[in-house]
Write a protein that binds this DNA or RNA. Structure first.
Length: 823
RNA sequence: GCCGGGGUGGCGGAACUGGUCAGACGCGGCCGGCUUAAAACCGGCUGUCCUUCGGGACAUCUGGGUUCGACUCCCAGCCCCGGCACCA
């Protein structure tokens, strides 16, 4: 008679997950102590880090993916005997959280704290092995005190400064944005078209590190090529020359930047950006003054997007610039395709060799003079700008430089200019300084005081933190809401004691997240941002995991911070993240999961339905971690089935107790091969989906023979292997079943190592090919000699059938793998 | 335009340094078992075409090439994705 299954026999994820989560919490299982002073960071300690979440809502599947990936890696490393620092925190300040608060109606602090609680609960429900003793929130004074302290260190070194500059303004968010936060002329967060304004703002001098950010990429292991490319593109280094033209008549200098000094003899006009400060002076009192002023005004009224898309236009100033290389005076125009932000805001225009200059010259009938020609060719009739450049092109119509190749010409002309102090080799960058101030409430206050007598005065370290004042009306209104906290703003000048006013702008959230990975190492330090010995022990982060969307923003800012702090001798390393892994995004029904599209599957929903373990397995099984993936509701049922199969299998094995059957055989060999595959995939290849396929295979194999009593010993060994290998992916069910099998704490056991003798097989299958086509397969003992293999292969009937008459011309043997007979 | 990454069944993908019918594993589909029945579960089949059922031919975006042997290497092209872009 079949017995009714009892409750403890049925797989109940909710109950066992709650049980083990409680055990881990009670025992502080994943808490990692700081090292003893003087401990070397070499050897068996490591730092695994995933990008911290914004608490602007609940966790979504992208987070589940990110943190499960890190969790699997962490478990394996810990079981290999490594001490793994694996902390968690919340990027709690900033537009994300503040906008969430505005939407929900409430104070940002309350909404943020509520979201943090929800996220923490979700994280615990997923069973991630996090060291909760190091949890930080960037919006707490214990944290942002040190953000302010760091700002002051940058300020002391001239790496943060204030200046008036044209800046990008988001009219919806009512705040300025960093260049990195403007995508296609729109606000990165809300998609609103940004405007241009001239404002006095705070900047970090990241441009000073442009070359180091490029050159020190060499030190980065296994950063994805696309991330490095994006950073290179963003920094936009280009080598060229600074050439000093002069205003005809006044002699005033008009420097330009060009990457093509070899085309200097082809400059037929000169152009200034409409914002160029010299324009009014050049035209003052001339007949052109009115027309030029009108043009400048018109251009200013155009949006950035309009200016970029319409046909280039401009206006003549009536003045001329003198070309230093030949003394020629060329007309100075004002043209809207010249950008004030790049180079010097002025260009020498070479219509024959630049597409844009060519268009402009055509439109206004300006001279086009070819000075570079293809090798062996000569100056051709005008047929558009000749911009192709290969190294064998030669200079023509270029005075004493005629006949040189283009690269030679570049060097020679630059050297000629340099000798006469009218130019020099120089490098241009696309990268601009990082605009860090924001006219919003929910951020870290900038710790300076403005004093009429003393100017900008830093708040002394011992007066930190400058607490963010509690105000009711925090809504953005164009100037910082902090300005309305009058009692807070009014403060004695730390320098002279006179009347001072606090800075009312707050910092960009990316400042908070540019150093959080340092704080984790020494999260509870009340005396310093960190103890350098401790930070140097854990860091750099050995494995960083996060979304591709931070390829330029966060990842470049954090690199900049680390380099600057290293230069201040606060850190012993120059790159924060040795290895980086960027995960793909999760889609459903072909679109990114989002509330507005109604295609969201919440982690809570999936956990309730299938359990955290099935979700953890599925999220990693979907496909290669670095690619975008499509969520499938049916797909998760596959891994839920796997968990259930393992559950039923183990209970059967446990019910049998000890068995007499031998604990070796083909199934044990299969188990050892699986150990090899799983370890190699995770540790060497950083691949997380194929190990699950390997586990599916092993479980399938066990199921095929599990009812054969003579194999009960093998079945037990293989089942234990499955539990051990699945533990990083499905820690709750693995732990529960391990306990039921009579084991101790599975998460504390050593990660299994395959026995090489069991991985290798004594019988191998040899492929026999004729002319590269497979015709037969032979089972032979491993290590068979080549001539024996050839003899066997030639003896095969199938081979003979395809060989026909005559003897083979050649045979190729790959030991233990194949024989190829060439007829 | 410049830079980077890709293109494999109905779908997600596997094949790691060129070497066993390319397509593991999962999803979906088909068939069978169990069941009064259904679900669940268990087992089998599932690239295309031909077949005398032994097998054979074709097949990893397209076209060439290297090689005994190519998803993998080389050349040319097409397509998709990402970054940068009036950047001088």
């Amino acid at each position: 008679m079949e017995m009714e299954p009892t409750d403890t026999d049925r797989y109940d994820p909710e109950a066992i997950e709650a049980k083990w989560q409680a055990v881990w919490a009670a025992e502080g299982s994943f808490t990692v102590p700081n090292p003893e002073p003087g401990a070397a960071s070499e050897g068996r300690s490591t730092y695994v880090l995933e990008m911290l979440p914004y608490p602007s809502g609940e966790l979504h599947m992208g987070h589940v993916f990110n943190y499960t990936l890190g969790d699997v890696f962490t478990h394996v490393r810990r079981r290999q005997g490594y001490t793994v620092l694996r902390p968690m925190g919340y990027d709690a300040f900033g537009l994300n959280s503040e906008n969430a608060a505005i939407k929900e109606g409430g104070h940002p602090r309350d909404i943020t704290n509520r979201n943090i609680e929800a996220i923490r609960r979700q994280m615990k429900r997923m069973g991630w092995a996090i060291d909760w003793s190091r949890e930080v929130s960037t919006a707490e004074p214990e944290y942002y005190r040190w953000t302010q302290w760091l700002f002051l260190r940058f300020y002391e070194r001239g790496l943060s400064y204030r200046r008036e500059a044209p800046v990008k303004w988001c009219p919806k968010d009512q705040t300025v944005l960093a260049n990195e936060q403007v995508i296609d002329g729109r606000c990165e967060r809300c998609g609103t078209e940004v405007e241009s304004k001239s404002l006095t703002q705070w900047f970090f001098k990241i441009t000073e590190y442009a070359d180091q950010l490029l050159d020190e990429m060499e030190a980065l292991e296994s950063w994805p090529e696309r991330v490095l490319t994006m950073q290179r593109n963003w920094i936009g280094r280009s080598e060229g020359a600074r050439v000093i033209f002069t205003v005809d008549g006044s002699g005033e200098e008009l420097p330009v930047f060009t990457t093509r000094p070899d085309t200097l003899f082809g400059a037929t006009f000169f152009a200034l950006a409409p914002e160029h400060p010299l324009i009014s002076q050049l035209t003052a009192g001339t007949e052109h003054e009115q027309a030029v002023a009108d043009y400048v005004r018109h251009t200013a009224a155009r949006s950035t997007v309009e200016r970029e898309t319409k046909e280039k236009d401009g206006v003549f100033t009536g003045r001329y610039a003198v070309n230093p290389v030949n003394g020629e005076a060329i007309p100075i125009w004002v043209a809207d395709y010249v950008l004030m932000e790049y180079g010097t805001g002025a260009i020498m225009a070479v219509p024959a060799h630049d597409e844009r200059d060519h268009q402009f010259a055509e439109r206004y009938g300006l001279e086009i003079r070819q000075v570079v020609a293809p090798a062996g060719g000569s100056a051709s009739a005008d047929a558009g700008a000749f911009v192709a450049h290969t190294d064998d092109e030669v200079l023509v119509n270029s005075g004493e430089f005629t006949g040189l190749t283009a690269p030679e010409g570049k060097r020679a002309i630059t050297a000629w200019l340099d000798e006469r102090s009218v130019g020099e080799a120089t490098i241009g960058y696309r990268l601009r300084d990082w605009l860090l101030s924001r006219q919003r409430y929910w951020g870290c206050p900038i710790p300076v005081v403005h004093c009429d007598a003393c100017g900008v005065v830093p708040v002394p370290d011992d007066q930190l933190p400058v607490l963010l004042p509690e105000i009711d009306d925090y809504l953005p209104k164009g100037r910082s809401p902090l300005a309305s906290a009058e009692e807070w703003v009014a403060v004695a000048c730390p320098s002279c004691g006179g009347e001072g006013r606090r800075e009312t702008d707050t910092m960009d959230t990316f400042v908070d997240s540019s150093w959080y990975f340092l704080r984790y190492a020494d999260a509870r330090n009340d005396d310093a941002a960190w103890d350098q010995q401790i930070v140097d022990f854990w860091l750099p982060v050995k494995q960083y995991i996060g979304g591709i969307e931070h390829a330029v923003l966060h990842l470049m800012y954090a690199r900049f911070f680390t380099k600057a702090l290293n230069d201040m001798e606060l850190l012993g390393f120059r790159e924060p993240f040795s290895r980086l892994f960027t995960q793909g995004m999760i889609y459903r029904h072909g679109a990114k999961m989002s509330k507005s599209k109604g295609n969201v599957v919440s982690p809570d929903e999936a956990v309730e339905r299938y359990g955290a373990d099935a979700l953890r397995l599925y999220i990693l099984y979907m496909g290669p971690a670095e690619q975008d993936k499509e969520w499938s509701d049916a797909g998760i049922e596959g891994t839920a089935r796997l968990v259930d199969r393992v559950w039923r299998l183990t209970l059967e094995v446990a019910a049998r107790g000890e068995v007499d059957a031998p604990a070796d055989g083909e199934l044990v060999r299969a188990a050892h091969r699986t150990i090899d595959r799983v370890s190699d995939d995770i540790l060497r290849r950083f691949q997380f989906h194929t190990p699950i396929a390997a586990l599916f295979e092993l479980v399938n194999e066990i199921y095929r023979v599990k009812d054969d009593p003579s194999r009960a010993g093998e079945v037990r060994v293989a089942t234990e292997t499955v539990l051990s290998l699945i533990q990083p992916y499905a820690p709750h069910v693995a732990e529960e079943l391990w306990e039921r099998l009579g084991g101790g704490r599975l998460w504390e056991t050593a990660w299994p190592v395959a026995d090489p003798a069991l991985v290798a097989s004594d019988v191998v299958e040899i492929a026999v090919q004729v002319n590269g086509k497979l015709r037969d397969r032979l089972q032979v003992p491993a290590g068979m000699a080549e001539d024996e293999l050839i003899a066997l292969a030639l003896g095969s009937e199938r081979v003979q059938a395809h060989l026909g008459e005559g003897s083979p011309r050649r045979t190729i043997v790959v030991p233990d793998r194949l024989v190829n007979v060439v007829a």
